[in-house]
């Protein structure tokens, strides 16, 4: 068994690389929910998010020897997840599907101070995110939800810092526009 609460990432990575396959369970348990949040927000549903997450952990295991800084295993794994979400998002045409499913969410979000309104807002922002181009949604989530620096985002996405700043700005402007449209619906 792996003591998740005690072992550091570096220790767990070392144990896996030494042949202790079960030690990887500790890393999976540690990062399941942290990475899951991004996958759910990016892909818009738990089913696709779980697929992306599972592929990410398996790819992470297969490539673990290339993780040159085990101290930053989480960030390294996150980079794989970002890529898997891109692939799954493109393959499954999720954007249209989610948008149709949540078409009326923005209107239902009119009252936001009660639990129902709060849930409606949660659905509304999901629907609004789904209407963004994947690159804009990705930039918005990495910047505002995962709270990464632009330099970290550049490393993850391969885009330049100026390009990412533009995407974040556009994402925010488009979300503002979507909310405005909902006001006038």
């Amino acid at each position: 068994m792996v003591d998740v609460s005690e072992a550091s990432d570096t220790e767990l990575v070392a144990r896996v690389l030494a042949g202790e396959r079960d030690a990887y369970a500790g890393l999976v348990a540690r990062y399941r929910d942290r990475l899951g949040r991004y996958a759910v927000r990016m892909l818009g549903n738990r089913s696709d998010a779980e697929d992306a997450l599972q592929e990410t952990f398996v790819r992470g295991y297969r490539s673990l020897g290339r993780c040159t800084d085990p101290d930053r295993f989480g960030a390294w794994l996150f980079g794989i997840l970002v890529n898997r979400c891109r692939t799954l998002g493109a393959q499954r045409g999720r954007r249209e599907r989610v948008h149709v499913a949540d078409e009326s969410a923005l209107q239902r979000a009119a009252t936001r101070d009660d639990p129902v309104g709060r849930q409606a807002l949660r659905e509304a922002i999901g629907a609004a995110l789904a209407r963004l181009a994947p690159t804009l949604r990705e930039a918005f989530l990495l910047k505002f939800v995962e709270e990464m620096s632009y330099e970290e985002m550049a490393t993850m996405t391969g885009a330049s810092v100026p390009a990412l700043k533009m995407r974040v700005s556009r994402a925010r402007a488009e979300l503002r526009q979507i909310l405005s449209e909902a006001d006038h619906a």
Binding site: R21, D22, Y24, A25, V28, A29, R32, D33, G36, R37, V40, R41, R46, A49, E50, L53, Q54, F57, V58, Y61, R62, R112, R118, L121, R122, A124, I125, A128, L141, F144, V145, L175
Partner: peptide
């Protein structure tokens, strides 16, 4: 407000762990 909601933790299905470990076997 939306960002604050999006930052809320997400609890994934714990059976995912077993599926991952079965696959990497």
């Amino acid at each position: 407000q939306a960002i604050a909601l999006l930052r809320e933790p997400v609890a994934m299905d714990h059976t995912l762990d077993a599926r991952v470990m079965a696959e990497i076997a």
